[in-house]
Design a protein around this nucleic acid. Structure first.
Lengths: 240, 240
DNA sequence: ACGTACAGAGTACAATGTACAGAGTAGTAG
DNA sequence: CTACTACTCTGTACATTGTACTCTGTACGT
């Protein structure tokens, strides 16, 4: 908490100056996560990137969990915030979703770190304030405002996790969807009886041929965002 | 894949009989995950629970990832499937959501394991077939059917993860929300200026006092499910 | 009966987060 | 100016993880 806000009451008075800054540590860890994923962020590698011994990092952060908090809040703080004042509300809300989607595309690791009881730092506060403003003036109560935003953000994060998992599965199996299907087709043909699973085979085939794979992040995002906007419209209609 | 479907072509012909069955291994791992969470599921502890040396498990599964696949498919297979034939569609869809919510309440670890390119086993197929039937007959195309179900399941899983994170945060900080707030209030009061973050402070306070904490899983579920049903209603209205 | 293919035991290794002890440094109190 | 104290950074150490490898013994097919 004190670190998140860079609380000046927390700077030490005695001893040698620190050779690095918290921001350098956070930046090094973020660069590593961007380049090689969250699992590459080990205390040893972050330290090596800074020319320092692993345990030296513990004078900057209390542990790895706190480092992740700081990374996330810093990423929030850097998010570009589209000005959408005066635009129709569906566009404003879609812009919020797009900003979060862009965050997860720049920093795929951000989707993987937890978000409940999140790092209550300046980055998150600025983000929250900005995103609430996109939903303001629709006649919702304050509680509904918060719930609607949470619902939207939950969707975008879940989508980003699914998209990242898709990429990871593709990479680690070293097959594209066609190869995967070819490898498993014999067993599946024997076992996926259309009489036992009529709807599943029908819908699965339809979705598969429409998207070229079992799961299409692109289509899921478009469908999901539209559904959420329609759901929000119903709430607004009830209130306004 | 062969293991998921218990392919009889995969049973060995020579050598000693296996002292255990795959199902015993999966059951032991599941029991461990239910009781102590996914991080307690180590090959060593699963093996110890079965009275066997860790590396003996590798004659049953090819690695930990496959074990998790088997656990998930088995959990899918055990899910009770509510018969909702003839009920209004909103009730049918809500029942699907409730079944998945119940799954994640019985097996919190299930929310944490990935779901894209999922274990295409008998449990998943039966689940998929059952859940599609709840959405059938609404005038949606097959692709929309699949997308709508995916959207709903993504929501329930994301909610379950958030709920689990909430519980975990509470446990590991060893504070309830009141204590947490009391511990951080001085700094937050200094730093959360209502003039800098007017909407955030207003909506955050409103949500916090309404739910007794920053995030209420219960409220998020009710709000989210309603929003999704409303969004689906709009799609159905457009089609039907 | 015998060789082959398998089950399970034991050992081993690299990687992780971080606790702990020691050496050196810079402010502050006397 | 000196001594103390609080601090930074280093190095070593440990428990824990998944799993590769080797070895011993077993039971089926010929």
């Amino acid at each position: 908490m004190q670190l998140l806000w860079r609380d000046p009451a927390a700077v030490p008075r005695h001893g040698p100056r620190q050779g690095l800054t918290i921001d350098q540590v956070v930046a090094a860890a973020t660069a590593l996560a961007d380049a090689e994923g969250l699992e590459a962020v080990t205390m040893r590698r972050v330290a090596a990137g800074l020319g320092v011994v692993p345990t030296a990092l513990y004078t900057y952060v209390s542990g790895k969990a706190e480092l992740l908090d700081l990374m996330l809040d810093a990423a929030y703080a850097r998010m570009p915030r589209t000005g959408t004042y005066g635009q129709p509300w569906r566009q404003r809300v879609a812009a919020v979703a797009a900003e979060n989607r862009a965050l997860f595309e720049t920093h795929p690791w951000a989707a993987a770190v937890s978000t409940v009881r999140p790092p209550l730092g300046p980055g998150l506060m600025a983000k929250y304030e900005h995103e609430l403003s996109a939903l303001d003036g629709l006649g919702l109560t304050d509680v509904e405002l918060d719930a609607a935003l949470t619902h939207l953000l939950t969707f975008v994060q879940a989508w980003a996790r699914a998209a990242a998992d898709t990429r990871a599965a593709r990479r680690e199996s070293a097959m594209d969807d066609g190869q995967w299907w070819a490898a498993h087709a014999p067993l599946l043909a024997r076992v996926l009886d259309p009489r036992a699973y009529p709807l599943a085979v029908r819908a699965g085939t339809a979705a598969g041929t429409a998207h070229g794979s079992a799961y299409s992040p692109e289509h899921a995002y478009d469908f999901g965002l539209r559904a959420i906007l329609d759901g929000l419209a119903a709430l607004i209609g009830r209130r306004g």
